[in-house]
């Protein structure tokens, strides 16, 4: 009878240990999920801000490009001339 009690007690201890591990694992996973959700929210928010910032910068760039179209062509002409001369040297 005593042997049975000892065996059952050992099984019970093992089962309790597994339970504890499961609970710990549950807590860790839940915590990780929450923090990942929070991180995703933050990245998404930053991404949205970035997108807005990019759109703003892109518009600014396109406007400036139109405004400086002639200057840009000028620069490219001189750059090409420099390449031609460098090749001849």
């Amino acid at each position: 009878m005593k042997k049975i009690i000892v065996i059952i007690t050992i099984i019970l201890i093992l089962t309790s240990t597994v339970l504890t591990l499961n609970i710990v694992n549950y807590c860790i996973l839940t915590n990780n999920i929450e923090s990942t959700k929070e991180s995703i929210k933050q990245v998404n928010k930053k991404d949205t801000d970035n997108q807005e910032n990019y759109n703003k910068l892109e518009k600014e760039y396109e406007d400036l490009k139109k405004e400086k179209d002639n200057d840009l062509k000028e620069y490219e002409t001189w750059e090409n001339l420099l390449k031609v001369i460098k090749e001849k040297l």
Partner: peptide, 28 residues
């Protein structure tokens, strides 16, 4: 999260690129 972070980094790189282009235009 990894995908969003990658998108975010790509977007940041695009912003850096356009900032460089803007600087180039301003210093033309």
């Amino acid at each position: 999260y990894q995908t969003n972070t990658k998108d975010f980094k790509n977007e940041s790189n695009k912003i850096d690129e356009i900032k460089d282009k803007l600087d180039k235009l301003n210093n033309l």
